[in-house]
Structure formats: C-alpha cells, structure tokens
C-alpha cells in the first residue's frame, strides 16, 4: 500500500439531541493512502457521512468529534478553524449529496468558484476565471463560459453537481471526498458523473473517498472498500475480495441483498432481517449480533478488527470461520 495520507483512528462522533445522546460514529479506524480510491459503504445511519464531515469540522452544531484524524503531523479534530481552513477546500475537497441545495442560491456560479481560488491561491480576475473555465471544462460542463454568469437555479441537477465537483478540484486537492455524489441525480446523469469520477481519478494523482450505499458504484470505481455498520468499520479490503469472499456476515448480507438481473419474477428480494441498531442505545458487544445468523456467545464482547490475508480484515469473532471470508 502507498504511504498513508489521511488516517482516521478511534473516531467518535456524538450528537446531543432532545432525546439524549446519539452515537453516530463509534471508534472508526481507516487509513487512506496517497492516490488510493476507497469506497466507504454502509446503509443510512451507519455513520459514513458524519465521519467525514467530522474530519473537516463540518458537523452540525450539536455534534462533537473525538479521536484522531491525522493529516501530515496534524490532528484535524484539534485544529483551530483558521488552521483547518488552510486544509479544507485546498488539500481536501468535498462533494456533497444534494446538489440542489448545496450551492448558495443568491451567488453566481462564477463567484462561488473563484472565491476558492481567491482564498487559497490569492488568484482573482482573469487568472481565476481562466482556472474556473479550465476546471469546468475538465468536469465536462457544457458552455462553461456561460455558466459562470448564471445562478445555481438556472442549472440542472447534473450541472450543479458538476459545479460542486469543479469547486472541489479547483486547488488540485490531494483527497477528494465524495459523499453520495450521485444519489440525488437521474440514473442517466448518475452514469455520466460516475464516468467523470473515473476519468478524474485516472488523470490525477489524488485520492478518492467515495461514500455510498450503492455497491454497483463501488465495483466500477474503487480498488478498496470499507464497510461500515453502526459507526464502525466492520470490514475492509480490496473490492474484489469483499465481493467474492466477504469475511463479515453483514458484508455478505449487503452483497446478498443487491437485486440481481436473473432474479425470478415474483421471488422476494433477499434482505437482512431486523432493523439497523438504535444509535442512542447500541447493543453491547457486536452491534450486528441481533441480526446475525452466525452469532455465538462470544459476540456479546465487542469484536476487535482482525487482519486477514491480502489486506482484508473484519471486526467479527468468527471472521473466516462462519462460512464466508478469505
């Protein structure tokens, strides 16, 4: 594996709510290497988005993060906002899920792009405009020149997402975090945006963190994947290994619940029984235990993340012995 760029260690994210404390992320560990394309997979509420929002100091007001997010010699969680602002938008870019609401409605697209160059590179005027056009071209925006003088509401959803991606790419970041970048888009546009990501990642040396619940997206784009459940990484490894030989029963369940083309008509879709855990009252031990078919007594203890062969690993006491695994 290449040298690590961003290392998440023991990350905890909690929210104070009227109904008590909610633990969205519970001791997440993940290592992102230079130029690596990694998918973070999990269902809604698995903490995958909140973990990366926490890395960039973007949690909602009632949220707090603990643990370590190492970038070079710094722990991002302990940085002042001023220091953090020299990293986010410049070395770490982020693309969000819903392009319809992610752009400021009363500012022209050009302004929303060039302010990034202004703040991080001191570029303004023609120089900045040139760079904006260059990046818009790179994200295959039709008529980029015209777009700069338009407001977000004059653009389609796909175009707005291209603006978001361009925004994140302006300063040539070392890491691009894409939080469900295609979820809010039409299927045809989804395919275009994914193809765009693929090309961007191949052209540039930046690392890509793709947060998604769509396993189909993962397969085409990433080399490594981390599966999250109840705020923890329960399995990580190469995408090929995870798909063919999942070591955690949850990963196996996820892959099993993907609709198949050959599925017989009328046959029920396979699902994982039970409900995702209540984050304000997590089960003791393995969080997946109540839904797991392979549970044993020892699962009442919280399983450690066990390395297996070929960089694969899983947080399961029975990894490799319940029937799946490497």
């Amino acid at each position: 594996m290449s040298s690590s760029l961003l290392t998440i260690e023991g990350l905890q994210v909690r929210f104070e709510t009227a109904d008590g404390e909610v633990s969205a992320v519970n001791g997440m560990d993940l290592d992102i290497g230079q130029g690596e394309r990694i998918a973070v997979v999990g269902e809604s509420g698995s903490g995958k988005s909140q973990a990366f929002l926490a890395c960039l100091g973007l949690l909602a007001r009632n949220g707090s993060a603990h643990g370590q997010v190492r970038w070079q010699d710094l722990n991002l969680l302990e940085l002042s906002q001023q220091k953090l602002n020299t990293i986010r938008g410049r070395h770490i870019g982020m693309v969000f899920q819903d392009p319809m609401t992610a752009l400021t409605p009363h500012l022209k697209v050009g302004r929303q792009l060039n302010e990034v160059l202004e703040i991080h590179r001191g570029q303004t005027g023609t120089l900045a405009r040139q760079r904006c056009l260059e990046v818009l071209d790179q994200v295959r925006m039709p008529d980029p020149d015209k777009r700069l003088d338009q407001y977000p509401h004059e653009l389609s959803g796909g175009m707005r997402q291209r603006v978001m991606i361009a925004m994140a790419l302006l300063c040539e970041p070392k890491v691009l975090i894409a939080d469900e970048p295609t979820t809010a888009l039409d299927v045809t546009i989804q395919a275009e945006i994914l193809a765009l990501f693929k090309d961007l990642v191949e052209q540039q040396s930046m690392a890509l963190v793709l947060i998604t619940h769509d396993l189909g997206v993962v397969a085409g784009l990433c080399e490594r994947a981390a599966v999250m459940y109840a705020g923890r990484v329960v399995e990580a490894g190469s995408v090929a290994d995870l798909f063919t030989a999942p070591a955690h029963p949850y990963t196996a369940g996820l892959i099993g619940s993907t609709p198949k083309l050959k599925q017989a008509y009328g046959e029920p879709m396979p699902t994982i029984p039970g409900q995702p855990p209540n984050l304000s009252n997590l089960p003791v031990g393995c969080a997946f235990r109540p839904r797991c078919r392979y549970g044993i007594e020892r699962c009442a203890e919280r399983p450690k993340f066990k390395p297996l062969a070929d960089g694969q690993g899983a947080a399961c006491h029975r990894a490799g012995e319940w029937g799946g695994g490497a």
């Binding site: 960039l56 938008g89 969000f96 609401t101 400021t104």
Partner: peptide
C-alpha cells in the same frame, strides 16, 4: 447545506 459547502471550501 450551502453554508456547509461554503465552510468546506475553507
């Protein structure tokens, strides 16, 4: 969300 985007830009 757009204020979050603005913050994410640094």
């Amino acid at each position: 969300n757009y204020v979050r985007t603005a913050r994410a830009k640094g």
